[in-house]
């Protein structure tokens, strides 16, 4: 996987992560790097688009709330946080993780924060898929006609 693909992967994971769980794991990792804001956290909206008929031309569906920020670690690594919702602490954690993932701390951070987050989110998604699977219809045909 290219560097960009890998970074996309963790940024996307951090954006969707439940904020309180990320906070817990972050505290557990015991990291407190010094940093300076490049852009303090701000809450805004993103217009979500759909496609006509699922495949056609785009149209505007409605907005969603997003919080973003950018920061620089003392070592110089720049981290960006774009997260769903209005939680500024969530955006800050995401940006810190993004920055640290570009440093020597990456392996530890992945193990302490990203891997458990990914596993838990995959499991909750899988649990919903299993419940959906249990509501799948098994058709059977009754015997028709007369003897």
């Amino acid at each position: 996987m290219s560097e960009i693909e890998t970074r996309k992967g963790w940024m996307s994971l951090l954006a969707r992560a439940p904020a309180d769980r990320l906070e817990q794991l972050w505290q557990g990792a015991g990291l407190a790097p010094a940093f300076a804001w490049l852009r303090a956290p701000e809450v805004g909206g993103v217009m979500v688009r759909g496609r006509m008929g699922g495949t056609g031309q785009p149209f505007n569906l409605g907005e969603m709330t997003v919080t973003r920020c950018a920061l620089r670690l003392e070592g110089g690594a720049v981290g960006h946080g774009y997260v769903q919702g209005r939680d500024k602490a969530h955006a800050e954690r995401a940006a810190l993780c993004d920055a640290l993932m570009q440093t020597d701390a990456a392996t530890d951070l992945r193990e302490a924060v990203l891997a458990p987050l990914a596993a838990e989110m995959a499991e909750s998604r899988a649990a919903r898929a299993r419940k959906a699977a249990a509501t799948k219809v098994d058709f059977f045909t009754m015997v028709r006609g007369e003897d």
Partner: peptide, 15 residues
């Protein structure tokens, strides 16, 4: 909603 700055638009969602 009208108080929110607009960060941009998403790619069309892949239903």
């Amino acid at each position: 909603r009208t108080t929110l700055p607009r960060f941009g638009a998403s790619a069309p969602v892949e239903t």
